[in-house]
Design a protein around this nucleic acid. Sequence first.
DNA 1: TGACTTATTGCAACTGATTTGCAATAATTC
DNA 2: GAATTATTGCAAATCAGTTGCAATAAGTCA
Lengths: 133, 133
Amino acid sequence: MTNVSHILRKTGHRLTKQRQQILRALTCRPQSVEEIKSALLSQRIAIDTTTIYRTLDCLVKLGIVAKTRFNEHNAKYELLGKTHHHHLVCTTCSAVKDIPLDDDFLMKKVKKLTNFHVQSHTLEFFGLCKHCQ
Amino acid sequence: MTNVSHILRKTGHRLTKQRQQILRALTCRPQSVEEIKSALLSQRIAIDTTTIYRTLDCLVKLGIVAKTRFNEHNAKYELLGKTHHHHLVCTTCSAVKDIPLDDDFLMKKVKKLTNFHVQSHTLEFFGLCKHCQ
DNA sequence: TGACTTATTGCAACTGATTTGCAATAATTC
DNA sequence: GAATTATTGCAAATCAGTTGCAATAAGTCA
Ligand SMILES: [Mn+2]
Ligand SMILES: [Mn+2]
Ligand SMILES: [Zn+2]
Ligand SMILES: [Zn+2]
């Protein structure tokens, strides 16, 4: 957190009340803008949707947050935690579960097979969660 | 192609002129609805956007087409070819390249680690293509 | 072939997600 | 505290995708 505020300052951004609160609302689980907004509202913190979008865009650019689209119409955002991980997305109830997977294997293979310079990747599994199957 | 028309008929769908042409426009490379529409237009085939959406939805449900979202605002659709593969997406020029990768390894690991019933997955690599690095 | 049934099309209107413009506000700098 | 300027909130705009509906055409069957 203090780390994040440092990054913000260093890049000429300001650590506003809103940004602090949005950062606090972020989790390692992907959330939509509306989910973040109502999570904040339930704590009586009202922040405009536009501000949430702009803050998230900013955090994505700084590499603090990841933006992902599971095959839904809206994007989801999650705090980039320490450990790299992937997701299990339930096609029935939309629940998302983190799953750590060692994918060095694949990354090396891509590097060997192509001349593409990989910067990041996403790996999502779609199916039925324990509850829905 | 004849195979596809068979699937359509068998499921109570009709093989319209529009569907045939949309199917012809589909490639193994993911394309947006607008891209499909202008590809058709360049052959003087004018099909309404709504029709393209509805046709693609239908083909996705029948397992003939895959819908994917790279971190863009719009979805992309590609014909499900014979071989399972993944994508290299250039973050500069947006070019998409297919890459075949054996991921049985990962699938088995997920099955072993969780009680999630995996139906499908997407694996996308983002970075710089040969031309853009 | 020709009538019949009903899936599909095209167009217009609509919804939901995200973006943009701008004046008011507040975080940093000095 | 005053000055500078990034950020906010609100309204309006844009963009992707969906829905309703009357007109059309694909498939069926006599
Ligand atoms: Mn996660
Ligand atoms: Mn492909
Ligand atoms: Zn579920
Ligand atoms: Zn490129």
